[in-house]
Design a protein around this nucleic acid. Sequence first.
DNA 1: GTCTATACAAAGATAGAC
DNA 2: GTCTATCTTTGTATAGAC
Lengths: 212, 212
Amino acid sequence: MTTMKNPTRRSQAVAAKQQAILTAALALFSQFGLHGTSLEKVAERAEVSKTNLLYYFPSKEALYVAVLKNILDVWLAPLRALQSDQQPLDAIRHYIRLKLEVSRDHPNASRLFCLEMLQGAPLLKAELEGDLKQLVDDKTAIISHWIQEGKLAPVDPYHLIFMLWATTQHYADFATQVQAVSGSTLSDDVFFSQTVENVQRMIIEGIRTRGS
Amino acid sequence: MTTMKNPTRRSQAVAAKQQAILTAALALFSQFGLHGTSLEKVAERAEVSKTNLLYYFPSKEALYVAVLKNILDVWLAPLRALQSDQQPLDAIRHYIRLKLEVSRDHPNASRLFCLEMLQGAPLLKAELEGDLKQLVDDKTAIISHWIQEGKLAPVDPYHLIFMLWATTQHYADFATQVQAVSGSTLSDDVFFSQTVENVQRMIIEGIRTRGS
DNA sequence: GTCTATACAAAGATAGAC
DNA sequence: GTCTATCTTTGTATAGAC
C-alpha cells in the first residue's frame, strides 16, 4: 500500500487498468485456454507491458483465477433470479430469456466456464461443490414444490436444470457450429428472438401439465 | 515404405502402436487442450518414447488433426442414423439414447469436439460448413416433413437439433458439474437410465402434437 | 524403427534502474 | 508504477548412431 495524495482518482485509474487486463485475459483465455494464451498477448491486447501486467497480477495462474472469479456471478445470476413466488412457467420462460441474454452478451464468460468444466474444473471444484450445489439444491426444492402442487409435469428437477443450462449455453459455447449450420448467431436480433421463442416453447411444452 | 517379410503382422503392430498413441493423445488433448498437452506426456501414457512418437506423427499438430478426424465419425453416427422411414417420436427417442451412449462411452471424444468448437473450430471449419451442414440440412428436411404431416409440433428444426445436441452432450462435456451437483455421472447405470428417460420425456412432450 | 544427445524457440518470471 | 535486460524452464523438433 503506497501513500496517496488523491486516493480516489488514483485507485480509479488502477481499477480501470486491472479491468482492462481482466477483459483482455477473458477474451484470450476463453478462446485459447490457459496454456494457449501467452502473457505477452494479454498485455498487448490490454495495452500494457508484460512486466506491468505482472505487477498487477503476480503470475499467470493468479490472473486466470481472477478472471474466473470475475465471471462466476454473471454466469449464476439467472439461476439466482428463479424464485418460488413466480408462476412456474413464467419463471422458467424468464430464466431462458435471461440465460440466452448472457449467452449473447457474455459469450466469452460462458465459453471460459465451459473450458474450465471440460478440464474437470480444477480451480472451481470447491465453488461447484459448495455454493453452486447449495444454489441448485435451493432451486430444485422450488421446482419439486411446483411439481407437488401439480403446476409442473413430474420431471426430475436436476435434469430439468441441466436441460436449461445446456440448451441456453449451447448458443454461446457452440456458436461456431450454430453459425456454420444455421448461418446465424445470437448477435443477430431476428435469430435471437427465434431462439428465445423456440427454446421456450419446446421446454415449456415439455414440462407443462396437461390442461394447464 | 520399407520392404517387409511379413507385412500383415508388422503393419498390425504398427497400427496398434498408432492407435495407442491416438488414444493417449485423445485423453490428454480432451482434458488439457492442444497447448496444455506435451508430447512427453502423450508418449508416456502411450508407453512409447517421445522420439518414437514423432516418428509416427511428424508433428504435434499432425497428431492433433489425426485425433480429431478419428472422432468425427463417432460423434456424427447418431445423427446419421436418423431416417425418414421411422416414426418421428421413436426416431427422436432413439437418437437421444444413442447420443447419450456416446456421451457415456466416448466422453473424451465429446469433450475434444467441444474444446475445438470453443476455439472457433480452426481445424474443423471446413468439415462443419461442408459435410456437417449437408447432413444437418438432410435431417432438418426430414423433420420439416414430419411437421407438415402433423406428426410433430411446429418447431424450427434447427433449434430442435441444437437442443438434442446440447442436452445430450452436456452430460459428457459438463460431467464435472453434473457430478458436483447431482452426485452421479452416466457411468452409473441407474443415473444413465434416469437421464435417458428424463431427457426423452421432456423433449418428446415438448414436440408432441396434442392428441398424438 | 528406435535410441541418445542436442539444437532451438517460446514464454513465465525476476532484478534492478529510474 | 513502469521500464529494460536477463534468467530459467519447458517443450518441439532434428541429427545421427545403432
